[in-house]
Design a protein around this nucleic acid. Structure first.
Lengths: 215, 215
DNA sequence: AAGCAGCATTTTATCGATAGAATAGGTCCC
DNA sequence: GGGACCTATTCTATCGATAAAATGCTGCTT
């Protein structure tokens, strides 16, 4: 009999809540009632509360002393701050990744880019492939701490993308941008790769910003 | 009647545990039994468990599915990784702080350095003043996210300092290092300030590394 | 002396219950 | 009509109890 990832109610609830928060199924700022969540996921107060505590420490949830938890708000201001932090952080992570990347890293990056290229946005698998591509780009940075931080920021950014759900990015060839980034990274043109990556983020941010404001 | 920071048992336990972990009163890797902690702090299982969940998300505690929590281990390897991450992260945070710092920032930095200078290491207030100095240095970086990340890393590093408790830093004038950093920062010599800060960290790391290994 | 089966003791994870705080209505007075 | 006030209901925070799992012993066997 196969065990289906049965590692404690707390972790299960944590995972599901996190997923629901990240892909926008739970609206920012909405109240997270312990009982309701418990009922939905078939758990009592304790596991739910623990899961919420973790998520609060991760910044996806706010704990308001004496009045429970709510989904972290999503404002244009916070989004701007997020994008800025991401650009500055990934600047050094990418630099170090390029400086340490070996042949295996190169190959993994090429594969990730290839997988991403053959998918179409809107395709269910695209999100995952996109995340994998950006992860592969930074994967060779020797500091797992910094890689994890970059990953955290990427997740938060994806939450905004899910919330904005822009029908498309008009007048933009995202595939080409990814291609250029990968090529430049493989050629180890450090400053240029950093610049392209930042522009990539800024450009996405511009679209999301308007999409968010227009909600 | 004055209310003494009475915001929920969970938060109280969280604060106390965090403090005990950071200053080494709780040894790395030691088991954190819910009941024992609850008894010590006068709380039941739920608040303790929530506090531990938060701390686990912050990385100060490990949750091992099915067998409770333990204090995060402290190894020389992780310490090296920590120092490296800190150098790379603060490189950009300091750069941006220098580029955005205004007159108020300068004055706050001067004050922080002054306060630090008049204290002696070993003085109870030194730790706090030292933390304040480094915080002041980075305070003008516009990204609160990155500042918070730097703060997190600083806390972890202080845990190692507390664990190693080197009697002194022989043949080293820490005060002079701080002075040089402040002066260079105020003069906006960006690359030089970054270099000095990194050297400052590396040098401390060297002492701690030997102190840790010799435990 | 190493290994191990089985029993006793701890500990974890989780539930259900409950006191007290917060919220949402509804009412009455100016 | 707009508050101020009171009340019913809803939630939160926290406790105590408990089943299941893990750990630690003990003594038997080879």
């Amino acid at each position: 009999m196969q065990e289906i990832s049965d590692d404690g109610l707390t972790l299960q609830v944590h995972r599901r809540l996190r997923a629901d928060l990240l892909n926008g199924r739970i609206a920012p700022g909405s109240k997270l009632k312990v009982q309701a969540i418990g009922a939905a996921y078939g758990a009592g107060a304790s596991p739910v509360r623990e899961a919420l505590s973790s998520l609060a420490a991760e910044g996806l949830v706010q704990r308001i002393e004496g009045r429970g938890f709510r989904a972290a708000p999503a404002t244009v201001g916070e989004f701007d701050e997020l994008v800025r932090a991401r650009c500055w952080l990934e600047e050094v992570v990418l630099r170090e990744s390029l400086s340490a990347g070996d042949a295996a890293w190169e190959e993994a990056l090429v594969v990730a880019q290839w997988r991403l290229r053959r998918l179409d946005r809107g395709d269910a698998a695209w999100e995952a492939a996109h995340a994998a591509f950006h992860r592969a780009l930074l994967a060779a940075c020797p500091s797992s701490t910094l890689r994890d931080m970059a990953e955290t920021l990427r997740e938060r950014a994806e939450r905004y993308r899910a919330l904005a759900r822009p029908a498309a990015y008009p007048g933009r060839d995202v595939g080409a941008e990814h291609h250029a980034i990968a090529e430049t990274a493989l050629a180890r043109h450090v400053p240029r790769a950093i610049m392209l990556l930042k522009e990539h983020y800024e450009r996405t941010a511009d679209f999301l910003r308007t999409a968010l404001a227009a909600r």
